[in-house]
């Protein structure tokens, strides 16, 4: 069963559209939800976690409606975006309270709390009041409360915001570990390369609509109207460029740097097939051949620009 299913889901705030007729399925593993501010990411997460009502359509989380449904909520761990805490509480009490509200009792609470604090690297700071935490610590304690009751689905709204690269790396490792253990994760982020490093399953959202979904590289290849860019690092970029410009499948070449050649093409597979032969014939040294615009950032830029 899919973790989350949306069928024709719309959400209006008065006359403003938050989500517009979204139909998609979010399955197992990690799914990255990306989009600019105001795209509708938090609206989607609010609907999935039962914080918002649907204006239209149906939304099912593990086959059931999410709004005010403890059967769904007990399987859900939610890390909200904002700095929302009872600041006077210590981290340990905060996570402990939410563990108990999540249904854990007795010794299982202490065990689960310590486990969640260890996983998020917050064990040594957990005795301190949350109001004294740094941004990174706040993000980690929010993550700890989200996973303390061992949910099946983690919904993480911008968990990397305000964290330094070390914390981001640690959190990414943790999320991959949880996904390997069978936890479904829906994560939104502005930091596209972090999402890209976490998963290739992407849901791109813009102006309340899903503009692309699925495997990132598949999405890129389906964008026929956008020529692909291939980057070739070589000691003789101009010599190669002269040959490549004559190829029918090549739409343009450029040499942005002394050792870099960018080849634009609408048929990247054919270019990849023919390039080795050209390189051997010309006896040039090549250090790298790679797609220059298959990154999440590039794809997202194309989609939102169009």
């Amino acid at each position: 069963m899919a973790a989350i299913e949306l069928q024709g889901v719309s959400k209006w705030y008065g006359e403003v559209i938050g989500l517009n007729n979204v139909t998609t399925t979010i399955g197992s593993g990690i799914t990255g939800l990306v989009g600019p501010n105001g795209a509708g990411k938090s609206t989607l997460m609010g609907l999935v976690t039962g914080q918002l009502h649907l204006s239209k359509g149906t939304l099912r989380v593990y086959g059931e409606r999410a709004w005010d449904n403890p059967r769904v909520l007990r399987r859900l761990g939610y890390c909200p975006e904002g700095d929302t805490f009872w600041g006077y509480m210590s981290g340990r009490r905060f996570v402990g309270l939410l563990a108990r509200l999540g249904g854990l009792t007795g010794a299982a609470v202490r065990q689960a709390v310590e486990h969640a604090l260890e996983l998020t690297g917050m064990a040594e700071h957990a005795h301190r009041a949350i109001r004294g935490y740094s941004k990174g610590m706040r993000q980690r304690i929010k993550l700890a409360q989200a996973l303390v009751h061992r949910p099946d689905l983690l919904v993480l709204d911008e968990p990397f915001t305000g964290t330094d690269p070390v914390v981001r790396h640690e959190l990414s490792t943790l999320l991959r570990q949880l996904a390997n253990e069978g936890v479904d994760i829906l994560i939104s982020s502005h930091i596209l390369h972090e999402v890209e490093a976490l998963t290739s399953k992407i849901l791109m959202i813009h102006h309340g609509r899903i503009v692309a979904e699925g495997d990132l590289h598949t999405v890129r290849r389906q964008m026929q109207d956008r020529p692909h860019a291939i980057r070739v690092r070589t000691d003789a970029p101009r010599r190669l460029a002269a040959h490549l410009a004559a190829w029918a499948e090549v739409t343009g070449v450029s040499v942005p740097d002394e050792d870099v050649l960018i080849v634009s093409t609408t048929k990247p597979e054919q270019v990849y097939d023919r390039l080795p032969e050209l390189i051997l014939r010309e006896a040039v040294q090549v250090r790298e051949i790679a797609a220059a615009d298959e990154s999440l950032e590039a794809v997202f830029g194309y989609l939102t620009a169009s």
Binding site: P70, L73, P80, T84, L101
Partner: peptide
């Protein structure tokens, strides 16, 4: 208003 209501309503209790 403090946005902490979200913690109380995403657990296993009815609103």
């Amino acid at each position: 208003e403090n946005r902490t209501f979200v913690y109380l309503t995403t657990r296993r209790l009815h609103r």
